[in-house]
Design a protein around this nucleic acid. Sequence first.
DNA 1: TAATATTTGTACCGATTGGTAAATAAATAA
DNA 2: TTATTTATTTACCAATCGGTACAAATATTA
Lengths: 213, 213
Amino acid sequence: MVSTEKNATPSAKAAAKPRGRPLAFNQDEALDAALNVFWSHGYEGTSMAELTEALGINKPSIYTAFGNKEELFRRALGRYVTGPAAFVAAVKKQTTARQVVESFLLQAVDFFTNKDTPNGCLIVQAALTCGQSSSAIQQELMAYRKHVEAGFAERFDQAKADGDLPQQADAKKLAKYIATIHQGMSVQASTGATREELLGVAEMALKSWPTNF
Amino acid sequence: MVSTEKNATPSAKAAAKPRGRPLAFNQDEALDAALNVFWSHGYEGTSMAELTEALGINKPSIYTAFGNKEELFRRALGRYVTGPAAFVAAVKKQTTARQVVESFLLQAVDFFTNKDTPNGCLIVQAALTCGQSSSAIQQELMAYRKHVEAGFAERFDQAKADGDLPQQADAKKLAKYIATIHQGMSVQASTGATREELLGVAEMALKSWPTNF
DNA sequence: TAATATTTGTACCGATTGGTAAATAAATAA
DNA sequence: TTATTTATTTACCAATCGGTACAAATATTA
């Protein structure tokens, strides 16, 4: 079920009036539905038949709107990164490295065990589903992971400059460490770990965090 | 290519002489080949076509020998657990909890990055590949993980009794912690992490291990 | 109204999925 | 040899995969 919605607001930059038959669904709602399916079953584990049912849209409409399955996944992934998983990029704004990683892991626990969304991380879930086709998707996901990890490493280098991490700290190593914890918690969550159990894991992982004091 | 091999040794308990046409392949070698494919691509990511090519055996022979794809996976999984992954159960024989977990993580690093085998852990790899069919396989893998984790928890309880873990230590929590590290390292390994990087992760993870001294 | 543009539903495409029927080949038992 | 048993080969099965041709439906423009 996708609600029909007309853009009834005549804004300043007038939206060009569409010529033909109007879309019977909302693109963003459809993408969110697709995201949920991919998030649950991975890329190759999701069939077009599942998608048509979840989106409430027939296949040809999906193809005219999004291109193909791979493009649909990319669009859904974009929604994921800027939506529910936006906290991953946002935590770097915390004032100290310690606060960054603590905020990251604790938010990840809540995120992974949120009752309203599939358990675990879409990117970890989809990255491991690899039938040697879809290698393009796989490499893209790997690149994204590397990007996130590099972002944390940069943040930790900044922390060393700020003086809230010891000079001898290895930023890349620390980044890979918390990425590994994150991915491990994702696997645990997608196979049934509870919020309390993951909080215990995060707490233990934080104990080994280097300090200047 | 699978070598033909007759059981030429007339042992005490005489092996019943087979009646019909002899098998043209060695079952254990075939299982090892199947294990390698499943290990690389997961359960659903592996097709029977890939298996026939990797084993060098036609499909009907695979089906008469092993039943079906699911049974073949189970058999391969058995070989995995008692073969290359046997160290997981064996490390519990170490004399202290600290030695158990240290030995476990360091061996896991070498195991995950062994050049002669696929990267990462078959069980993590296959557990996340889930197209809602094969839920039987998925639950079996989850049960196995739980079993391993429970085994570590038991070992840590023993360590508390032995006095090499503090009395206030939470055995289940510690077990889930190292299981999470293990799974995270597996994801990292299957997406390209090097031995040195994983050693860094393991080293950091060990820093938070509780001590009595 | 008629003409045009776009989306929809139905029905289908070739390729691949896991799995098998049936004939043939290779062994032992009589 | 002949009968029996088992394994192999070839060729095929229905179901599903991602993707699409085509015509009916619904909108704007003229």
